[in-house]
Structure formats: structure tokens, C-alpha cells
Design a binder for these strands. Structure first.
Lengths: 105, 105
DNA sequence: CTCGTAGTTCGATAATTCTCGTAGTACGGT
DNA sequence: ACCGTACTACGAGAATTATCGAACTACGAG
């Protein structure tokens, strides 16, 4: 049970909660992930973005972002492709994502 | 030392960090405080908003919001008046605050 | 089938942080 | 001067979370 090609659970747009999204984006590692995903554009391999943490920690952060509804993750071979849920986030909180992503840092 | 009428420390606009702001807004109690401050409008007494926590916990949350640069707090008699730092937040992250405040909940 | 790569899961630890109660400070009124 | 109200400070407990290492699963290439 639980093979890697099983669809991963994602919240529906209606089930995305602002607090979970804010919490997900408030962590420096996760914010960096999201910024990079945004920069690279559509569909980037999770592992391609280098981070100052081990791979199990990376898994934890990717899951946090996925469960909050910030990214969508789909298996592709041995990799997993992550995409920002721009459409959903823009529909729910218009302007928020752009404002956060374009913030200086 | 440290009398109540001392000016409380607030970060300059340039020192406001997006991560701190997101972290401050990610807590349900603090988000409720901010929503209420926004609804009530300019300058509301911190203690006027009722919360399901004790007053020392309230102090903690107010300080977190203040130190993140989300609100400005000024002594006024025995009370403290809190105001959203709309101008600064809108300048730094245009559209973010409105998007968060108008999110359904 | 075996190997290497990509990622997950589990258990543990360390760090935050949310929460509270108690004690204390500041200010305004009587 | 005294009291009540508003809030802060400190110390401690409970909960959450960030992090890691080790063991495991899945898939593709040879």
C-alpha cells in the first residue's frame, strides 16, 4: 500500500485555509522553495532546488506546502514535479502571492 | 527603567521582513486581532477586542504583531492603542494585506 | 535482475512558541 | 494616599515543528 505512483492528497480549492497558507509560507526554507518554483516556472523537480537541509527535511517541507494547498505535486518517473497552485491562490487571495513573491529579501 | 510611557520599539519600514509578517499573521488569534483592528478602523484599544486567551497571552500576541511591523502600539492613559501599519505594509507588499483580510473564514 | 537515483517513513532530538498564573508597574480617579 | 484598571514581565508547562539519520520503497537503466 502507498506506492509512489499513488496520487498524492491535495486539498480542493475550497478547502484551502488562509492560515495554513500563511504558515506554510512563513518558513524560510519553504519560502525559498516557492520563490524558486516561481522563478523556474511550470513544473520543476522538487530535488532540483538546492537547500541547506537533508532530503528528509526537504520531504517534510514539500509535504507542508502540498497539504496547505500552495503547490501541486505529481509523480514523474522516480522524480516528483511540483507546481505552484497559482490559479487557486490567485482566485482565493488575489494579489497575495505576487506581493509575497516580489517582496525584497 | 522601562516605564509604560516609554515609546515601544517598532521596526522601521525598511526593517520589516516578509517572513516575520507572514509568521505573525499565520496564528489564528493574531489574525483575528488584525481582522478586528481593520474592521474597527483607526486606533483601537488592544483590550477591547475579546479573545479566547488570558491577558498575558494577549500581550504576547500584541508584541509579536508589533515586533513584526504589522501594528503600531502607542500608550494612551492606562490603555494602549493599536493601529494597523497599512501604509508600510501596502508600500512593501502591495495587495497582500487586502488579500489576506478579505479571505473567507 | 541488480544497481543507482529519488523520495518516503519512522523515531528521536532540539528549538520554537502558545499558553497560563503570579507578581509587578503605570496611570487615572476618588 | 489609596484603589482599580490596563497592561507587562517572568517562569513554567504543553504543544508544535524543524531537523536529522537510518531504513525503506519505487522506478529506470544497464
Amino acid at each position: 500500500m502507498g506506492t509512489m505512483s499513488d496520487a498524492l492528497p491535495h486539498p480542493d480549492r475550497a478547502d484551502i485555509r488562509i492560515e495554513a497558507v500563511l504558515h506554510a509560507l512563513a518558513d524560510p526554507v519553504r519560502l525559498h522553495l516557492v520563490r524558486e518554483m516561481n522563478r523556474i516556472g511550470t513544473g520543476c523537480a522538487c530535488g532540483a532546488i538546492d537547500l541547506p537541509v537533508t532530503k528528509s527535511t526537504r520531504t517534510h517541507h514539500i509535504r507542508t506546502l502540498r497539504e496547505a494547498g500552495v503547490i501541486r505535486v505529481t509523480p514523474e518517473g522516480t522524480s516528483r514535479i511540483a507546481t505552484l497552485r497559482r490559479d487557486d491562490l490567485d482566485a482565493l487571495y488575489p494579489g497575495m502571492l505576487d506581493a509575497i513573491l516580489s517582496a525584497e529579501h
